[in-house]
Write a protein that binds this DNA or RNA. Sequence first.
DNA 1: CGGCATCAAATTGCATGCAATTGGAGCGCC
DNA 2: GGCGCTCCAATTGCATGCAATTTGATGCCG
Lengths: 252, 252
Amino acid sequence: MAARASSKTSESSDKVSVICRALRRAIIEQALEPGAKLPEDALGERFGVSRTIARHALGQLAAEGLVELRRNRIAVVATPSWQEARDAFDIRIELERLVVRQLAGKLTKAQIAELNAHVDAEDRARGGTDAVSIRLATEFHILLAHMTNSPILVRYVSEVAYRCCLTLSLYSRPHSSECAINEHRAIIAALAKGDEVKVMELMHHHLDSVANRALVAPTPQRGRDLLDILAPYADEVTSDRVVKLPKIARRG
Amino acid sequence: MAARASSKTSESSDKVSVICRALRRAIIEQALEPGAKLPEDALGERFGVSRTIARHALGQLAAEGLVELRRNRIAVVATPSWQEARDAFDIRIELERLVVRQLAGKLTKAQIAELNAHVDAEDRARGGTDAVSIRLATEFHILLAHMTNSPILVRYVSEVAYRCCLTLSLYSRPHSSECAINEHRAIIAALAKGDEVKVMELMHHHLDSVANRALVAPTPQRGRDLLDILAPYADEVTSDRVVKLPKIARRG
DNA sequence: CGGCATCAAATTGCATGCAATTGGAGCGCC
DNA sequence: GGCGCTCCAATTGCATGCAATTTGATGCCG
């Protein structure tokens, strides 16, 4: 079932990648909320490895933008600012438009069946927890990326999709994923029909509406706590660019 | 001058990031060719750190796709297949179109001056070695990405640009970067004028022609040696997907 | 009662050491 | 002479240990 999720790219040794996968999944299922602490000792003990390995795994996840690593401080699950979340979605839209552009009209019957099966699974999961729904919805997009047979595209789509998941737990309200499922079905249909322009539009609209459902207001009023609310500001201070380059109006 | 290149995102500790930056630079300047071995001991000794740190750095670079890490084997500089190179360029085109779309008409005079200064530097470097020209050309694109003020975009553009550099040393012939410089100037002009559509076209065309100059033939006849020529095949075997999903015609 | 210095526990940063795996040289066999 | 086998040096995989830094708690002083 979940065998395909391995990805393998850039995953060094087994123990490290096991931890990475576990943490990634915990994060996208929101078992680990943004800001959650990830001490090396605790991880190592939990996964039965030494701190060295846990540390290495954290490094990988930091490279993917899922955790934040500050020197001499406990690693935490990343807390993207609202603007970063918006940026992630913008990038995701372009990447996934590329995915469906490459895929339109080129899918085999078996692949279309696999996609439909996945959406069926999403449908069945509607009664269950949000966590599973979100994970399945994300995996649908990653499954699409896989079908391009382009490891690089898979990597980037996966990463940015995970990041977008992260922001859902931060800024979105309880979530209703029904419409998303229908949109997935529409995308499959357009892919099968081979309508390149149409499917790109559909994907664009789909992701845009997911983003808009999620990023309701630029101020994360219901952010987890002060730390999260303050995160964007801290970010600005951290960014080494704002001093030199006068900030431009973003996304006019 | 090069201060801006720090990026900071996902770079954990200092020693690790120093090694990463050094290796990245060595790779894009083609001092380290694809396939070059990177033993942990040697790196550690060279940079005055322990193997643990060198290993961690290699892990980061592997996450960026610049080095390949196979279990119990010496790490090597990544050797992208021709198809992967083409994919990288396709992704890069979309990402950089996004960059200039966000930037069109929003740059300050200071920023435009900075861009022009950079291209002047590229011009001056024309007499020098190819290595410096390539590095400067790449840094121009990264500089643009920085000006979006979007760390995520910076990260992805940087990564994919580095990957594209990698492929230049594999598949491209000696290289003449003059036209590229003019194209850079044209992009700056269009950005200043604020012509969003035009600048996106320019960037698209620019990157496409760079790709076409580089990826002359789908068969890397002049590839470094057997190992490189065989890389794509090895890749196919490695990929865990080909068995289940019948391969679709790529980029028809 | 609130602010500040001091100190101990917790945690990371990094090097070292040992076991396991690999690559290849040398050697015997066909 | 070519092919396969065995064994050893080289290298990675990982755990542990020690020094340095941060956290936050306690107690002191205003």
